[in-house]
Design a protein around this nucleic acid. Structure first.
Lengths: 203, 203
DNA sequence: AATATTTACTGAACAGTGTTCATTTTTTTT
DNA sequence: AAAAAAAATGAACACTGTTCAGTAAATATT
């Protein structure tokens, strides 16, 4: 049955073509401003065809969401080998912000944007956010073992740290840094993060 | 010329009617999901009428933006009289988060959402964000005078603090706290903020 | 009081959106 | 070569923000 296999392959290729094109447009123009017809035009198929491969626009969005997290983890993985937990925490933050600066559209999509259209994806199954949370909590736990964060609830500390970095990231991305000169913003981002780490260290 | 005055009054009333209705719908259903026709239906006028009082949807959005900041400042004002700068900083944070919890839709609109439609409002004129920034920076300056934040750039410290609180707020609002039980989230918000203040104090 | 002018409002029309589905085209099986 | 199955189409539906010629109401002038 070579035909069935070829069909399977063709279906996957088509899916990839659609997803790649959608991703490209989403990142270029933003999710809201990319229409299904735009995607259809780009792949030179009719709009209806997309719906044979993806249930709706939000499924396309979800698929790209997953891809974003894969890229995100490549950044985090680079420093996950560091022995000293506090140094690891510092470098994780730097990787986080580097991802934000190099992939702002992805970050926006992954951590800020709500699902477009309806919020249908309530699937408790595999929330990609869980995994990044895991990386953080285990590092914080290691820090605690190394003598930091005495008398502190590690869950609260983890949440605080994530909120700090996410706060920096989302103010940068959603343009709430207008009171600082444009060419100093990235610098300020890392400076603030560094100051935060400094006060964490002597805790 | 009593007529001109009455007309002026009527015009303002109409503007208020439109804005109040739009605000109500924006907060209830979200900006994107509220259409100009929805607003027109609610006030029992035709869609075209709205455009005689507001240039476009984003002007309605802007008007409500301003109103949001007025409410926001009522929260901050409550504690701006506190003498001790560090205590003021602590209470400002609590007020900030209280506003977020009591007016999540407003907060989303003011600090997270991008202008709907195009990002036309580049008006450098009076950015409402500036004022809240002012409150923070002056309090941080007072803290520095009181001996805190030694050898630290107050601009960096201010930005860090704001990012921390904003990070907590936006993770709460944009539902990135799914790994915590729903009834514990508000509590965690304040706990994280409190821990942050604790580590700030011994700095 | 009747007419002219200004102001206010309407709602159809335009170009766009996500999505569906009967119809047509292409491919595979008989 | 004919029948069945699969894939792709594109018109249609109900919606969106916005515009603008036309109508209706209120005011000013004669």
């Amino acid at each position: 049955m070579g035909i069935a296999e070829r069909k399977e392959r063709e279906k996957e290729e088509m899916q990839k073509l659609i997803l790649d094109t959608a991703t490209k447009l989403f990142l270029e123009k933003g999710v809201e401003k990319t229409s299904m017809r735009n995607i259809a035009d780009a792949i030179e198929y009719s709009p209806g065809t997309i719906y044979l491969y993806f249930k709706d626009k939000s499924e396309l969005f979800d698929a790209m969401h997953v891809k974003g997290f894969e890229i995100f983890f490549q950044y985090l993985s680079k420093v996950m080998v560091i022995e000293d937990p506090m140094e690891r925490l510092e470098q994780l933050g730097i990787q986080y912000l580097t991802f934000v600066i190099e992939n702002p559209a992805y970050y926006d999509m992954m951590f800020i944007l709500r699902t477009p259209m309806q919020a249908k994806h309530n699937k408790e199954e595999w929330n990609p956010g869980d995994r990044s949370h895991q990386v953080l909590t285990s590092t914080v736990a290691d820090c605690k073992r190394a003598g930091y964060f005495k008398d502190q609830n590690p869950e609260v500390v983890s949440f605080m740290i994530w909120a700090q970095v996410h706060g920096l990231a989302s103010m940068f991305i959603r343009e709430r840094m207008k009171f600082y000169p444009e060419d100093k913003r990235e610098e300020l981002l890392f400076e603030a993060k560094h100051t935060f780490m400094e006060i964490l260290r002597r805790f």
